[in-house]
Amino acid sequence: MKKFKKEWPFHLMLLPAVIMVIIFNYVPMAGVSLAFLDYKPAKGLAKAAFVGWKQFETLFENPNFFLALKNTVIIAGWKLITGLIVPLVLALLLNEIRKSWYKRVAQTLIYLPYFISWVLMAGIIVDIFSPTDGLVNRALESFGVEPIYFLGSNTWARFTMILTNIWKEAGWGTIIFMAALTGVDLNLYEAAVIDGAGRLKQMQHVTIPAIVPTIVLVGTLSLSNVLNAGFDQIYNLMTGVTMETLDIIDTLVYRIGVQNGQFSLATAAGLFKSVVSSFFIILSYRLADKLAGYKIF
């Protein structure tokens, strides 16, 4: 009781946030019970019958679900790999640029797309990748290449997603790696120079060892996104034709839930994703803690 007397201001300060989180995070968590009911919005929650695993059975019998799962893992996997390598290479190369104004301008340009919404980026992407008058196809045409349907063909759609994802998101990873690189003790470079190390040797023996912990950290934390293939990007760039290679779990959930009104089935699909994702999030935090000493709090 004495403890509470001293600590009540803390409880009071936390109260508003706790209430909000209960309403908008914990109540929806309880809402996953919809996945085990046959809920029809028109009939109301009270009349929804308990159907056990039926929604999941329906889901697993649906070939579209496995297609979406496959697309999700492929697209997310490529995004994880490119999301690690491209920023790393860019940061290492930026680090070699000693003209500070040049480096600043380059950083400014490379980081910018990260802050622009996927809606606007999608608008731009649709425009420049247009097969008839897009910039890219106009450039290819001058080399005698036939127009490519980057967004309209299943051969190219995934590639286009991964490419444009690099464009938009590489800046973020580069910022993180650059932050790690600016922390490197400059004396180490001087010492390396005195020992007769050239640029490549300096990178090999000073820069890379200095950012290995950051590489491990970014790599392990990104594991938590195994099932996040990027709803914002895919939803805005997918067409009926490219559904075969681009439809992901998130877009599927949206279609069956919001567009078709099958709330229970959509919740089941969402729950499947949440459970698998939770596993990967916990795994990634564990690994980040073990390998890079990262603790979330």
């Binding site: 803390f10 946030a17 908008f24 995070n25 929806p28 996953v32 919001v258 919740t267 729950l271 709090f297």
Partner: peptide, 27 residues
Amino acid sequence: FSARNFYMWFFVFTMLFSGGMIPSYIV
């Protein structure tokens, strides 16, 4: 603050698991 870690987990748990699009919409 003796309840600090309890509150911390209360918040962090929402980063680990979410109800998803449909339950949030219904709320």
